[in-house]
Every structure is written in C-alpha cells, then in structure tokens.
Design a protein around this nucleic acid. Structure first.
Lengths: 206, 206
DNA sequence: CCGTACTTTAGCATAATTGTTAAACAAAAT
DNA sequence: ATTTTGTTTAACAATTATGCTAAAGTACGG
C-alpha cells in the first residue's frame, strides 16, 4: 500500500537513520532497521542516498556540527568569565536535552576513528584546539587577578564539560540506578543548569 | 607454523578479545580481528569459546565487575563523608587508568541493552540502587548538620561521577583537542585525583 | 490526460561473517 | 611410545547485509 502521509520521505528517512545510527552506531546499524523505523522499504533508502556510508557521513556531519558549533560561539563570545561558564552550561544542557543520544553517538564514533575530529572540524572551519587554548588563557588570567582560586586550566575545563555532558552519555545507567523515568531525568537536567553553575562557581570562588 | 610461545592461549585469546570488544563494541568486533590480535586463527577461538556471544558475555561480565564492584566497597565503607569522596575519586581514576576503554565499553553496551545493568547486577549480587540511595542519605545528613552546602544529592552524585569518568569516556576527543599524548593524559589523570577532590570539596564546603 | 517524481515489490549478486568440521601435525604428558 | 591436548590449515554451509535493478503502481502538478 502506498503511503497516505504527505511527508516528504527524504527527511523522514534521515530522521529514522539518525535514530538508528545514534542508537546502534555505524556497525550496529542495519539498513533494514532504518527502513522499518521510517516505515518504508530498503530500496527507497538507496533511491535517496547511495549507500550506508553516504547516509552515515551526512548524519555524522550534522551531528558533529550540532555538538560543536554552538559551543564555539559561546566559548568565543565576549561575555564575562562567569557569564561564559553559565552560557557553556546552558548551551550544552539545552542541546543535549533536545538530542538525547547526540553526545554518546559523537563520542563513540570519534573513539573508533579519532581522525574524524580533525577531519570534520576542518570541513566545518572549526578549530577546536584554538578554542580551548583561548579559554585556558582566560582561566589563567582570572587566577592571576585573584578572581578565582588557582587551578589547572585543563582540569577546570574538563570539570565543566564533564558535568554537562556525562549525565547524557550515561543516561541509561543513571536512569536505572536512580530509578528515574524520562520526565524526571529531563526535569533534573533542566534544574541542572542552575545547580551545575552554582557548583562550579562555588568550587572556583576564592 | 605452530606457536613457539609457551603461553596458554585461552587467556591470550581473552585478552585479545577484550581489546577488540572494548575498541569496537559487540557488533563492531570481528572474530577474525580477535584472532589476529591474539596471533592465532579463527578456529581456535571456537575451540575455547563456543561462539562470539559466549565470549562476549564472559568479557562483559568481567568488565562490568571491574567497573562496579570496587566502587561498591568504597561507597559502603564507613569512612567519613569527605574521606569517602576522596576514595571514590581515587578508586575510579585508578581503575580507569588501568583499563582505558572500560568506561566507554560498559556505557555503550548498557546503552544498547539497558536491562543488562539489572541483569548483571543481580548476577553479581550487587544492588546499584541501594548503594546510591544510601550515599544520598549521607549527603542529606551532612547538609542538615550544616557540614556542606545545601545541594540536590542526585546532582552532587552525578557531579562526582561525571568528573571522574567522563575524561576517560571522551579521551580520544580530549587528547586531540588539548593536544596531549598518552603519557601527558595519564599524568593529568594522576594529578586529577587531587585536583578533582579539591574542586569538589571547595564546591560543597559552606 | 500526461508526465514526472515517488514508492513498492520482488528479486538477485555479491560480499562479509559466523559457525563448524576434517585432517594433519606439534608438543606435552603419561 | 603412545595418548592427549593444543594448534593450524583448509574448506564449507548457513546466514546476514549490502548494493542494485527492473517492473509496476501511485500520486501529483501542469
């Protein structure tokens, strides 16, 4: 039977593919499952996208962008140091709340092929290294001015990022161990924007 | 040619399988690659372990144990609250330094089949939920006694765990973005035991 | 009504992967 | 010396996944 939906299938397929790829990773994903998830058949996947790898690359690039691009803006804004921390937290938690499997997906795929980080970074005109270097300089400056406690900039940076991202990466474990349903988890993450900020500020305020 | 090594192959295979499974995950792992990694041939894999799934389960159970068991001891010790935090950090970073891909592996596989958390937990006689509940009560008590700032116990718990585990999960990204080689990274993690502890204590001390 | 774009069905070729076995051989144990 | 155990080689069957295409049907716009 033909689809009665008026939806254009290209996007529909892409959304389905995102779901399956983010759930299962590249090797774990099955074209059949993607088709099923989209409610169409395998042949149509090849009609729109040549093959699995093509599809994956399109999706990975999109996801990579979602994961990094906005963050760059926040890092490189000229907000005050504490404002910047607040913005980083807000931005990360907001994005990851909207795309629950994003972080795990990007991390896992980069872990299996670390070159992709540089490769896709260049493709998007991003320089991850520079971004972090600048932020660390800012940390250093704030320490010297006595505005925050002395701390290794790399550690502070890792702390901020860890606190934002890890809960999403480990969501299935956390939900189970803390007996939370999806809504509770999401509420907790929303509240976390404030809680994490306070936690970090308390940690660095002299 | 027969092996001149005197090593018993069972363990040798298992070690190779651990490497491949933790690098690639279940679906990404190839029996051929495991054999190659072990320096033997595929037939021998089946001589020792019936099939892929059997092998995987043995390994996953081991890794799952490594990831959780020791932590339980630390959580349930009767050290003081701050000592306990220190021990949790030390323990986690020590374990993950020795087994670099452990966290990513366990998280990834549980994400794909969350039931495994309960399933393997029971098999090992662990009750993850209880452990966390008790710790949260301890947090609550310390807040009421004015020993630490008021904070949502779940958030504090997530912060501690995130700070310890995330750097290892995202190691490939972090190494690239911060331009660290393996040794630098490991040194930083060793130093992190102290840095992370101070960070957290500063964050919660009134 | 016609044509074009979309979609399904059905099927096939190819490749990759896994599970399994037979035969031979080496090394070690008895 | 011979049995047992470990190991290799080689080959195969079964399964699964992928890439692809032909044919036909649907639907929509012009």
């Amino acid at each position: 039977m033909p689809k009665t939906d008026t939806k254009p299938s290209e996007e529909l397929i892409l959304n389905a593919a995102v779901k399956v790829f983010t759930r299962k990773g590249y090797t774990g994903a099955r074209m059949e499952e993607i088709a099923k998830e989209a409610g169409i058949n395998r042949a149509l996947l090849h009609y729109y996208f040549r093959d699995k790898e093509t599809m994956f690359n399109i999706i990975f690039e999109t996801k990579f962008k979602e994961f990094f691009t906005g963050l760059f803006g926040v890092f490189q804004s000229n907000a005050s140091f504490t404002e910047k921390i607040k913005n980083i937290i807000d931005h990360e938690i907001t994005v990851l709340s909207k795309h629950p499997d994003l972080a795990r997906f990007v991390i896992m795929e980069i872990a299996q092929q670390p070159d992709r980080l540089i490769q896709f970074g260049q493709k998007l005109g991003l320089n991850p290294r520079l971004m972090l270097e600048n932020f660390q300089k800012e940390i250093q400056q704030n320490i010297e001015e006595g505005k925050i406690r002395p701390i290794d900039g790399r550690q502070l940076l890792m702390n901020i990022i860890s606190i934002c991202i890890y809960p999403f990466v480990a969501k299935p474990i956390i939900k189970t161990m803390m007996q939370m349903d999806e809504n509770t988890f999401m509420d907790l993450m929303e509240k976390r924007k404030k809680d994490a900020y306070e936690f970090i500020i308390n940690a660095i305020t002299p």
